[in-house]
Amino acid sequence: MNETEILKAMNRIDGQYLDVRAGIKQHPAKWYRRPAAIAAAVCAAAAMTVTAGAVYNVFFHKESVEHYISASDSLPETPCLTAENSHIRLTVDKILYDGCVPTLIITAEALDEQGLRLIAETPIIYFSSRQQPDPVTLGLAGGGEMFRDDQEDEKIYKYICELDSEDLLNSGLDKPVFLHFSFSGEHRVKLNEKGGVDTSEMLSAEVRFEKNLETAEYISSDGRCITMSPIAAQLGSGFTLEEGENDLLMDMQLKYSDGSIGPLPHSKTTTDHLNYEITEGVASVGYERLFYGRVLDISDVTAVIVKGQEFTRK
């Protein structure tokens, strides 16, 4: 048996799966939409000049971190990185890595009127590295998920960002990675003379991802695994969801060392993306991930319970 035979076997899949005329229902992320006024402002934006590199500085936004992860004082200290131009200051307030998905807390501040218009839209992220010198997009909300709640202050936006990208992970996180944030909209990305993405007008930060969160694995009798860190839980493979059932992660129960059982906390901000259209029948939900919205002491969690089945700590 070889891979060509899998490709050939696709000839015989059910005819109902071949009808791809219906659109995919995407999760309701506001930042996909581009209001006409903002689009006009983006098109009229003058070229930005960017200060070279990223510097350590005092612009740490504790309120940004607390907004998405409460009780955050117990999180590890990480470098606070800033890049700015005359319109926007971008700060990476926290860099967290549990060995699965890097997570960033980011603050974007408008420094002038043009900055107000530019930061009204969620930036597009690109990354490059020594292994991946040509910048690769992490996209609007895929690969690099940037979540943003409704916020009242139009001069400052706080983001929580998951960099769940195979391209990024495969490039190797043991070396520094450059993240480039484009506030001019993906359709305005400039190309360099080689046809690659020109990041010279983006705000860039060199980031190092080192595993700085403890993790614990919880294993079921049939070998399935759930990984937990102090900020998020992630399913392994082999998990399914029946039609009509609630999301597995959001319904998960935690068993503590004193024998008590309680729900898994979760942040509304980042669980909206789990609210995909439920499939007919049964859906595979392997590798899905959920933020708690606060720091969880996983040392006290001896087991997790999913659909009545216990997963014990490895």
Binding site: I6, N11, Y276, E277, T279, S284
Partner: peptide, 17 residues
């Protein structure tokens, strides 16, 4: 193999399928 692929696809969320 085709049956297994059909079964696998039936368990996927529509956008993944």
């Amino acid at each position: 193999l085709a049956e297994l692929l059909n079964s696998f696809l039936s368990k996927q969320k529509p956008y993944k399928r």
